[in-house]
Design a protein around this nucleic acid. Sequence first.
DNA 1: GCCAACGTTGGC
DNA 2: GCCAACGTTGGC
Length: 140
Amino acid sequence: MAYWLFKSEAEVWSWDQQVAKGETGEEWDGVRNYQARNNMRSMKLGERGFFYHSRKETEIVGIVEVCAEAHPDSKANDPRWECVDIKAVRPFKTPVTLAMCKEDARLKDMVLVNNSRLSVQPVTDEEWKIVCELGETDPS
DNA sequence: GCCAACGTTGGC
DNA sequence: GCCAACGTTGGC
């Protein structure tokens, strides 16, 4: 069971919009980066990920679940680009900011801390637990 | 709003 | 196949 992190600018696609999609979820479209796409190709149904607001808030605001495995991005005119569908699981009680992650020595190797430009990232089991703890949120 | 870091493109 | 030029992302 792998864990992930999805980044989005709140102005483009926010946590609230994700929640509004309910159980149906929504395509995580628009990824035009091979590394990020390859991460999505590795995702299995039911795997969990963090939902992160980039640029303005720079914080992890909720937990999502993969509800459809990788398929062609319906908004791309190019078959190279694929995406998964995700649905909101629960919001963080306390959002975990990037600054909090940077301050925590246990998270020094987290991709979020080291490679700010990758929009779909893997998260380790350990990092998952620590971030949930910082956010006072049920990790299950 | 600025700019560093990164990814991609395309000429050679 | 190299690398300069360009475009984009995202933290600050």
